Simulated assay, not measured.
Amino acid sequence: MRHQIASVDADHTSYLYEWKLNGRWNKLGATVNSDFVPMKPGSAEEFILEHYWAITGEAMLTRWNTRWSMCHGV
C-alpha cells in the first residue's frame, strides 16, 4: 500500500490511496474542499454517515464538498 496527500490550493487537499492486488495497482482518490456546509436531514450524506460510518454528534451536522475518483486495476 501507499498513499499521497497534497495541497491543491488554499481551499483544497487531494488524497490518494493505492494498493496492489494480483500484481496490479488499484487506487481511490478524493479532492476535498475545506468549506463546510450544513447537512440536510434525510439527505444521502446523512444516510451514509449514519448507517455506514456510525458518526454521531457535531460530525453529522456538516459534510465536506468532495469530488471522488476511483480507478480499478491501473
Rank of each mutant, 00 (worst) to 15 (best):
E18I: 15
E50M: 06
Y17R: 08
I5M: 05
R2N: 07
F47C: 01
S34W: 07
L16F: 07
T31C: 04
G23D: 14
R63I: 00
M60A: 02
Y15P: 02
W19H: 14
A10E: 10
I48V: 15
G57H: 14
L16A: 03
L61W: 14
T66E: 02
I48L: 10
P38Y: 03
V32R: 09
L61Q: 15
E45M: 09
R63W: 05
H3M: 11
V74G: 00
L61P: 03
T56Q: 14
T62V: 10
T66G: 00
M39N: 09
R67V: 14
L28V: 10
F47I: 03
V74L: 08
M1S: 07
G73V: 02
T66D: 01
R67W: 10
K20T: 11
G23P: 01
F36L: 15
E45N: 14
H12K: 13
E18Q: 15
A59H: 13
E45Y: 06
N65G: 03
L28D: 06
L61D: 09
M60G: 03
A6W: 03
G73D: 09
W68K: 04
W19K: 10
H12P: 00
K40F: 00
E50Q: 13
R2Q: 07
F36G: 04
F47G: 00
F47P: 04
I48W: 09
W19Q: 08
D35C: 04
E45K: 03
F36T: 02
N65R: 14
K40V: 12
L16V: 15
C71Q: 07
T66V: 15
I5F: 05
V32P: 02
W68P: 00
I55F: 12
A54T: 02
W68F: 12
T66N: 00
W64Y: 10
E58D: 11
N33R: 13
Y15I: 09
F47R: 07
D9Q: 08
D9N: 13
T62M: 07
N26Y: 11
F47V: 03
G29D: 11
K20S: 06
M39R: 08
N26V: 08
I5D: 04
N22C: 05
